[in-house]
Computed example of a mutant assay.
Amino acid sequence: MPVTYTYDYKSTESASNPQGTSSRTVHTTPSGTTVSSTEQPAGGQATTQTQHYPAGGNQGSGSGTLSREEAERRYLEAMEDEYAKREGGA
């Protein structure tokens, strides 16, 4: 019987300066990744954009499981992104 993995990963980053604020949230689940970006200029109206990227191997399957290789690949990508954010913010 093949081993399958499920996962859920979420990260948020935000920035604020005299020109305004911005934030970006990335939420990855077995069904895909959703990226939400919000920008608000100082004294202005906030705008939000949301994009969903379906999981490559699970489109239409609805099973919510990944192969071990796919789960490891996504985990490593998420960790690389997290380390890059931390090093960039230091």
Rank of each mutant, 00 (worst) to 15 (best):
residue 40 Q to S: 14
residue 57 G to T: 01
residue 22 S to D: 09
residue 29 T to D: 02
residue 58 N to M: 05
residue 82 E to Y: 15
residue 44 G to Y: 14
residue 67 S to H: 04
residue 30 P to R: 03
residue 6 T to E: 00
residue 70 E to A: 06
residue 5 Y to W: 08
residue 8 D to C: 01
residue 80 E to V: 10
residue 26 V to Q: 07
residue 17 N to C: 04
residue 34 T to Q: 06
residue 78 A to T: 10
residue 82 E to H: 15
residue 77 E to H: 09
residue 8 D to I: 03
residue 84 A to Y: 06
residue 18 P to H: 01
residue 35 V to Y: 00
residue 33 T to G: 00
residue 9 Y to I: 09
residue 10 K to P: 00
residue 87 E to Q: 14
residue 57 G to Q: 04
residue 80 E to S: 11
residue 16 S to P: 00
residue 89 G to P: 06
residue 46 A to M: 05
residue 9 Y to E: 01
residue 80 E to D: 12
residue 51 Q to W: 11
residue 19 Q to P: 08
residue 31 S to G: 00
residue 89 G to S: 14
residue 81 D to W: 05
residue 73 R to N: 08
residue 86 R to L: 14
residue 87 E to W: 13
residue 15 A to K: 02
residue 40 Q to L: 07
residue 18 P to G: 08
residue 35 V to E: 01
residue 2 P to Y: 02
residue 85 K to C: 13
residue 13 E to I: 10
residue 66 L to N: 00
residue 85 K to R: 13
residue 42 A to R: 06
residue 88 G to V: 00
residue 44 G to H: 10
residue 29 T to W: 00
residue 14 S to E: 02
residue 27 H to R: 01
residue 84 A to Q: 10
residue 78 A to R: 07
residue 52 H to E: 15
residue 74 R to L: 08
residue 10 K to W: 07
residue 69 E to I: 10
residue 1 M to E: 14
residue 83 Y to H: 14
residue 7 Y to G: 05
residue 37 S to C: 07
residue 18 P to A: 10
residue 37 S to A: 06
residue 54 P to M: 02
residue 86 R to Q: 12
residue 79 M to N: 12
residue 90 A to P: 15
residue 7 Y to R: 04
residue 7 Y to W: 02
residue 50 T to E: 09
residue 3 V to G: 01
